[in-house]
Design a protein around this nucleic acid. Structure first.
Ligand code: FES
Ligand code: FES
Lengths: 140, 140
DNA sequence: ATATACCCGACTAAAATAGTCAAGTATTAC
DNA sequence: GTAATACTTGACTATTTTAGTCGGGTATAT
């Protein structure tokens, strides 16, 4: 079970952004420098975040990206979904009747993995961007 | 976040075994047939389970593998550890002071991923093989 | 004009995954 | 004692996924 960089960077970049005044465009170049994330990779990530209505873009010089909603209303689960990164614990197709073994019944561990799936998604569902900021403030 | 087949099969195979009398050797061939898992792959997995004292082997004809402990005392976390599959949510080295970005401080999301790590491991820590059987019995 | 910064699809090297293969050894059944 | 069963071990490989990069745009502020 490994978290990939795309999800990790997406959250990292948005967390970086949410430290700035809400209507102030933050350029990817700045995020790239502050967080040491490849600019080209960030561009790829932000196109998806934009398509999924998490940020909006301000083109041209002095432009950048702006959070489309209050950090309080941006759940981690939305961010993950935006960058196409799903939790996948079962071996079978989720909405098929077939099992991971090709048989017509679900395997003996299917329920367990399903439970794990819900459990993990719960974590992302119950965290939002502002939760992140708060832990940070406590520390600094 | 994806669960790999090695962990999935390991648990599946052990769940299969634990349906049989505790001292009755179960051959990998049988598990392979019942659960539709490649025999050669199972062999690889069981060597690790054996090295980690989860099962013991009975060689020769009518041989197979036997659970070394009561299913109640085999936690999923042990199984995962045995097959070398760790949860990895952070980008940095866990016991290094350095961040995932190469800097000398942990990144702004480090705490979050750490929390997620603990959260997921908790799931595995609090489930044992016999829990699996029980959900199955309820259903059948 | 020109510099800045987003836009977008295609491409690729490297790593991880999901197995397979070959060549054994030990034990039991006949 | 020989055949059959079943575990043992290390190496090897195809496929997939990941983690980016590249090239050639377009829009806007100064
Ligand atoms: S994981 Fe769903 S059938 Fe095995
Ligand atoms: S995840 Fe640990 S420093 Fe970024």
């Amino acid at each position: 079970m490994k978290l990939n960089t795309k999800s990790r960077y997406a959250v990292m970049a948005l967390a970086d952004m949410s430290k700035f005044p809400i209507n102030n465009p933050v350029s990817l170049r700045d995020i790239s420098l502050r967080q040491s994330i490849s600019l080209l990779y960030l561009e790829q990530i932000f196109l998806k975040l934009k398509k999924n209505e998490i940020v909006k873009s301000v083109r041209g010089s002095n432009g950048g990206y702006v959070l489309k909603r209050d950090p309080k209303n941006i759940k981690l689960s939305e961010i993950f979904q935006a960058v196409d990164q799903k939790v996948k614990t079962v071996g079978c197709k989720k909405d098929s009747k077939k099992g991971c073994n090709g048989k017509s019944v679900k395997c003996i561990t299917h329920e367990l993995w399903d439970e794990l799936d819900i459990y993990i998604n719960n974590f992302f569902e119950n965290k939002n961007l502002s939760d992140l900021l708060m832990t940070k403030e406590r520390k600094n």
